[in-house]
Design a protein around this nucleic acid. Sequence first.
DNA 1: TTGCTCCTCACGTCACGTGAGGTGGC
DNA 2: TTGCTCCTCACGTCACGTGAGGTGGC
Lengths: 269, 269
Amino acid sequence: VKIGEFSKLSRVPEKTLRYYDEIGLLKPAQVDPFTGYRQYSVDQLVRLNTILALKDLGFSLEQVARMLEDSLTPEQLRGMLRLRQAEIEQRMQSEQARLARVEARLKQIEEDAMPEYEVVIKQTEPVRVAAVRGTVPNYGSVSLLFNELFGELGRQRVAPVGPPVAVYYDEDYRERDVDVEIIVPVGTARVQEGDRLKVRDIPALEVASLVRVGPYDNFTPAYQALMTWIQESGYCIAGPNREIYLRGPESGGKPEEYITEIQFPVARK
Amino acid sequence: VKIGEFSKLSRVPEKTLRYYDEIGLLKPAQVDPFTGYRQYSVDQLVRLNTILALKDLGFSLEQVARMLEDSLTPEQLRGMLRLRQAEIEQRMQSEQARLARVEARLKQIEEDAMPEYEVVIKQTEPVRVAAVRGTVPNYGSVSLLFNELFGELGRQRVAPVGPPVAVYYDEDYRERDVDVEIIVPVGTARVQEGDRLKVRDIPALEVASLVRVGPYDNFTPAYQALMTWIQESGYCIAGPNREIYLRGPESGGKPEEYITEIQFPVARK
DNA sequence: TTGCTCCTCACGTCACGTGAGGTGGC
DNA sequence: TTGCTCCTCACGTCACGTGAGGTGGC
């Protein structure tokens, strides 16, 4: 039968049939060599239906083609189905998380006006860092650790390969006796460890991240926003938070142009 | 700052930044007219993060662009979020159904070997049909109704515009006293209704469909396969089933080449 | 002869990624 | 001078859909 009738029988558009011919997924039973007219045979409906059914399970046409090869063992077929199953479950998870994020934003919009900070999930890359950790009496004193770290690196003539980071180890917020570590990526440079200076590898992490522009005066609203977002979006905190000083005093710019990224390692709940 | 540094700060690939420039989503603060070098300003990180956050909710870049326009009222924004929410829920539903279908196929593969019939969900189009309904003593007598219908249409010189269909109204399977209706699409042709012959409109339906090639001798396995599929895939039956005689005796072909499609109207459970 | 069906290009979709080939700036 | 960074094309992705322009068959 001609393509038009085959299309009606199968309820598949002609364009689609021509495309399946082109990619070799479903060749017509014969093609007139002069006119190019495609002739399908009725029992090709069976193969076409198999194609549609597999496509319906979410396989790509390339995968469908592989699954229709005779050389495929039932074992391999089972493997592909299992893989597909896992992929769908994965996708459902992320759609679920996405839905939670949309709902969080709707809720936020009901309460106040515009969101002031934007939170984004990122995957960080593993890096080698030099670190100094200590407990300082208050936040203002964090700069002492900065001086210590950069002083020592300067003596060793090691240049950082990225912006400095502060890691806050306290479980809950505290004004005094803050347990903090200052780290800076050093790449492949050789660094001499000391009593205070350590070198360690930071693994890749999934983090909820927020970028803040402005002077170092009041981080509380940003932290509030970030923690609320994590709550509402169905994540949970999976490690100590960190502040990345993307642009700070060393840039020579105005404090209004300082840029700080706040990250919390997170995991799906 | 130059594109490389901006890319590192934001963890967004340069290619992506150039693309956002190209589509006007995030233009660099300035571009050198001679070299074409892009210069970004640090506070553009805020806009970029908003873009990433909205993209993360599943919006297309075009939608993101609209959402970032100042002219957008909170009301419109809420509308877009609600719509997105509904879309995600919809998609979760269909992923759920897909997962059920994959699992059904896995189960089938465990039990016996290859699936003999392929089941596909289709949307049928609404059609106007001529119909004759009656209760016949057994399946073999269905041809009496065929003769009645085609005889009357022949007298009226009305040509069918599609293959004939039998609709089975019995709730459960029965061998005798079958309540069946023979229908045939008539398109826009004028048909004179009679005592037995009726004209009615069939609405669009969602059906689970199976195509069977072979003589009219034993439909039971096909029905079995179709009903099992519907069960396992999380659908339920939503109306009387129908058989569509895509290629039957009137083709003059051999019974082995008859093609019959079996449909059950279905709904999501 | 007139519709209707069929054909083959060619281009668009979406959000980039992957080179190729060439220049600017230290 | 040598790397490194930046630039602009051009093409590919996936599964078709949308024309344009032309022919075959009744």
